[in-house]
Design a protein around this nucleic acid. Structure first.
Lengths: 149, 149
DNA sequence: ATGGATGCAAATGATTTGCATGAAG
DNA sequence: CTTCATGCAAATCATTTGCATCCAT
């Protein structure tokens, strides 16, 4: 599997994105956006916190910031069968296209790889070519039901 | 969408299943298995606990029991984009076939419906026929990677 | 009897919230 | 200035664990 597309956001772009989404251009927001975009795999809140280093913001600020990013659609929350969520950048702004994709996670070592095409049959072939065994998949849909829309 | 297949397990069958899987036939285990099998939708640990009533076992026992069921493959743990897991019976023993399926959950009211066929294109058509809008799906794989197997 | 099962309380981990202070527009 | 952002501590919520006791085999 090839590495994740380069979604890297530098501080300049981060500030732009924040403004475009009506968010304040604070140091913390810029750092979190940059950090998330640098990662090849989705990060948990606590990983983001660690990556920023102890001198940086509080973990509660990481959560608050991520929640704002989620509301703006800047990041996507992922369930990879763990006890916590992971997050990835969904939009990197002009010049950075985000494409629909999914992940494979090893239930043993936790390694996470990206898979790019969205079709189960193709997916399973690709993943077994990667050497994965005992594959399981979790396909769940959400939407707004007729009563609610 | 049709209702879930009838996976109902009565206390007799529950005891059988427990023995078959090398688990003790305790009142609590029987109750939880029966309760889970009665539900049309997957239940969370706390829902199971509530359904059993206040006079029943402790929530910690629900978790311990579910974990044993998971290990034995009697129940499956599901991620429906919530902050907690849900569980469903995977095997109802002889005479009860469990089939591979997925779910749709309304992001607004939380209602969960069963979808039976495992193909994304078919799924999305079926779900939009149900009146769902703004559909999103989460397809994630797990497996054992080549280094671990 | 003996090991597994359970209740209860305390511990853990992820996530959220209240409040007082500091920074962005 | 005035709103929003942040740190810190405390609160929640889901889940786990330790320990003493009780039940299934």
């Amino acid at each position: 599997m090839k590495a994740c597309c380069d979604n890297h956001i530098n501080p300049e772009k981060a500030k732009n994105l924040l403004s475009l989404n009506g968010l304040n251009r604070t140091k913390t927001k810029v750092e979190i956006l940059v950090e998330l975009s640098k990662s090849k795999t989705p990060l948990s809140a606590s990983e983001i916190h660690q990556h920023l280093g102890s001198e940086s913001c509080d973990i509660s600020t990481v959560f608050r910031t991520i929640n704002q990013f989620k509301e703006k659609g800047l990041v996507k929350e992922l369930n990879l069968g763990e006890e916590f969520f992971r997050y990835e950048v969904t939009s990197s702004g002009p010049g950075h296209d985000h494409h629909h994709h999914h992940h494979v996670r090893c239930r043993d070592c936790g390694d996470i790889k990206l898979i790019e095409k969205c079709d189960i049959a193709i997916f399973e072939k690709m993943i077994s070519k990667l050497g994965y065994q005992k594959m399981e998949h979790h396909l769940e849909f959400t939407g707004i039901c007729s009563q609610c829309s």
